[in-house]
Amino acid sequence: MELLNIKDLATIASDDQNKKILDGLNLTINEGEIHVIMGPNGGGKSTLANTIFNSYRYIKTNGSIIFNGEDITNKSTDEIARLGLFMSFQHPVELPGVSETNFLKAIKDKKNNEHQDVFALQKEIKSKMEALNIDYDYLKREFNVGFSGGEKKKNEILQMMLLNPKLVILDETDSGLDVDAIKTVVKGINLYKNDNNAVLIITHSTKILEGLNVNQVHVLVNGKIVKTGDANLAYQIEREGYQSLLNEN
């Protein structure tokens, strides 16, 4: 079943409205699939992720986004999230004074639309932390404050596992991570992944793709998807770069 359908999407930057970023982008993702988006810097990869979430940084000038049968093109970020979309941020924020526990409880309660039993939640969080090799001590710490880059990314995956969304967008979750941390992230994705949900991975490297069952790889250049292929396309890009690929066209 079709989970995400993006048609003719075009955006400009809120703070520089002459700047076109996405320019006629089309993408369809079905349940059970893993898609990968690669592409040179500045091509619009992160913009795509944030446009789907209706970030204040971008303005849509054309196109539509249908998620799970609902038109989310003009919905607010929180409505979109509550429909079952999740993004692992490239640069997660820090929240001084907000403990990891309180943060996780707040988002989980919102998702369930009720206050969950604290002990049951604690148990659930701990089992997921264990899978991701996150120390329980982090529960008492302030959210992301003083966390290393790798710890912040694992914290994103932890939230993903806890919220169990329908579609996950991983925006360069692997960048800056060491090999072991990438393996942990992949483990998290595999624990989460099933036939009814889907993953969209934005990346520069194939490291994160090893151990994942990738269905499609898209190349995003100048705001458009210029090429789509299977997992081998990613390895070809890693070997040969984007330039030779673009010359082929």
Binding site: F53, S55, Y56, S76, T77, D78, I80, A81, R82, F86, M87, F89, P92, V93, A106, I107, K110, K111, Q159, L163
Partner: peptide, 8 residues
Amino acid sequence: YYLMSRGL
């Protein structure tokens, strides 16, 4: 924006 992306 980050917190809203988590549903709040």
